[in-house]
Design a protein around this nucleic acid. Structure first.
Lengths: 133, 133
DNA sequence: TAAAATGATACTATAATGGTATCATTCTGT
DNA sequence: ACAGAATGATACCATTATAGTATCATTTTA
């Protein structure tokens, strides 16, 4: 069980790299060279980040990407949302009814509490924060 | 992203049911009837619980299962361990080196903190606790 | 001895994740 | 003008984890 997937992990590494390189443009080629990630995969991730508004892109020769958001405002939790969907650790897994619970089920309540703690913590984890470490 | 899988969810429901039915034996048939779970699946789960020492089983006609552990000592975290493996939310996902981190990577550190909080919380969630709710 | 139960085990299906490939488009330097 | 280097869009494939099924052997009791 992992809190983040490779998508998210690669994305955050790429963003940290870009934050460090700013205001220079960073191309997929740069990232492949310096981070050793598979090229087509990182390309896809960059495209998703761009679509989501985290990156500003410039096409053509000497083109590349730049952060479109300040590192202090680039939160891990938003990347998770983008690549993995909403953080929701306590959904009911039962396919049939049984469970009138959903609202009251004590198991869900506890899982939701953990979820809330995790999200609260993740809110503070930004690209800027991770660069310091 | 879910903290528990169906295996675990079904298991805990079955255990709660059994705790309520004690000291009567509970058969797979009972659980299929009263909880509506797929029979072969719940059978497999019961067998795993038995092997792991959470259940005591009696074979033959009128046989079934009983809790082998007091409900107060049946912790969700142990079921997660059994069905999903160790709770480890912060493993490095990078395949190549790059990352001299592992020990120092600030991202891992944060994820490990969240993991520790979650595990601490899960320690308190027992079958007995869930029955009260 | 038949029926009802678990024990053991092997198999299949589905979905999520991870990863690849390709062609179109845009921009720059020569 | 045009070649080359970059992104945009999109479709596809591979691997793994989860979920679920099936089957046969064994045990116990009525």
């Amino acid at each position: 069980m992992n809190l983040i997937t490779r998508n998210t992990d690669y994305a955050i590494r790429a963003l940290i790299y870009m934050a460090g390189a700013a205001p220079e443009l960073v191309s997929a080629t740069d990232l492949v060279r310096d981070l050793g990630l598979p090229r087509p995969f990182i390309r896809k991730i960059l495209q998703e980040l761009q679509k989501a508004g985290f990156l500003y892109s410039i096409k053509g020769k000497n083109g590349g990407f730049q952060l479109a958001v300040a590192p202090e405002k680039l939160r891990l939790v938003d990347l998770i949302l983008l690549f993995q969907g909403p953080v929701s650790m306590g959904d009911c897994l039962l396919r049939k009814k049984i469970c009138a619970c959903t609202q009251t089920c004590p198991l869900r309540l506890e899982l939701k509490k953990i979820e809330a703690m995790a999200v609260a913590h993740l809110q503070n984890v930004t690209v800027a924060f991770l660069m310091k470490g």
